[in-house]
Design a protein around this nucleic acid. Structure first.
Lengths: 123, 123
DNA sequence: ATAACATATGAATATTTGCTCATATGTTAT
DNA sequence: ATAACATATGAGCAAATATTCATATGTTAT
């Protein structure tokens, strides 16, 4: 009950299950999309940014508020907001010298919820 | 039409919108969960690991197959599979000296799909 | 104009991370 | 037992990244 037509040759530079490899290769999305996908998750892959996004789920906030909330430097928060801005995850509006940030994407919450599902269901 | 009871004091060490900060603080998940969430996304935040997972969506594969498919070193793949294993995203079965890896989580595909949604809908 | 302040940003530093190289482990065939 | 092979792993290196520090920018109040 195991694969029959295995062309076992050699691991380095040659191929083992040629048929599987070819089939899988067909099913793979484009290189570029996989790259973009990794880029997004990279943005989510930092505790500070996750916290900022969760804060913004609840309310728009100015930079200083976020810094106080997370007990971090204004500069550190500002740098991270730039990353989130570049990823088009947050937007901002200015009111005098104060800059208010808010979410710019509807999917984030859903993605996070499923991430938490994963965490929960592995006990 | 702007917030009225702003206790504007000072950014460093003091507070601006105290009421908002407190409200948001209430709504935030536990520190630990946010950390775990970031950890998962960190795992997804690498092109190689994304590719491996996409390959495993299509079929279980041995380490060597994956290395050939992605045109990477067996060692590099093995290291990354360890990361995926620790994150409980993949499982494996041994058949002689060959080790076959497969997915160990049902949410991954959904999470990825929503990640792709995000990419698509921002044009 | 000047002082106070919110935010942004560049440079430097420390940490993390992905890969390579060499080698170890464990299995199969002879 | 030995050779061949699939996989795992530790050490080292290079690149990426998060934060700090100092300072720049732009706004408001005086």
């Amino acid at each position: 009950m195991k694969d029959t037509k295995c062309k076992i040759v050699k691991c380095d530079s040659t191929i083992i299950h040629e048929d599987i490899i070819n089939a899988v290769k067909e099913s793979m999305p484009e290189e570029e999309r996989l790259y973009d996908l990794a880029e997004i998750f990279k943005v989510f892959g930092d505790t500070t940014r996750i916290k900022i996004l969760y804060a913004l789920f609840a309310s728009e906030m100015c930079v200083c508020d976020i810094a106080v909330l997370l007990n971090m430097t204004q500069s550190a928060i500002s740098h991270q907001l730039r990353v989130l801005k570049q990823a088009r995850l947050v937007k901002f509006r200015k009111e005098g010298k104060v800059v208010y940030y808010s979410l710019d994407d509807d999917h984030i919450k859903q993605i996070f919820d499923q991430g938490l599902n994963h965490i929960n269901e592995r006990r």
